[in-house]
Amino acid sequence: MKIIVADDSRLVRGIVEKIVVSMGFEAVPAANGQEALDLLEAGGIDMVLLDWNMPIMNGMDVIKTMRSDESFRQIPVLMVSTESEDERIRQALEAGAQGYLPKPFTPEQLTGAIRRVLSMT
């Protein structure tokens, strides 16, 4: 299983990648939304972990692009963001994210959220 970890922060990518790998998955890093889309184009991706605020292309735009593209429509997305207000979560879910995990999170919370999203599809 191959999971894109999209976050402009190398620190957050580092934290998330370790957890993803510890779950037995392969983590593919992306530093912004455009890089995430390029990786999706290359194929073989099973899930996307997306930050909301990123340069060049933000997480919401990535979801919208994915949901409007036949080939990526089925790939599950878990949004990870410091913005944790209900309104934000609703916006992300409406746009097509399967899950939303507010920061800060423990490794267990991230593992749980990834499993939940994967089990939904």
């Binding site: 957050v12 410091t82 944790s84």
Partner: peptide, 13 residues
């Protein structure tokens, strides 16, 4: 990234 993430999380939560 770390310091930026910490202030981000403090403000976001």
């Amino acid at each position: 990234d770390g310091v930026s993430e910490i202030i981000n999380m403090i403000s976001g939560t």
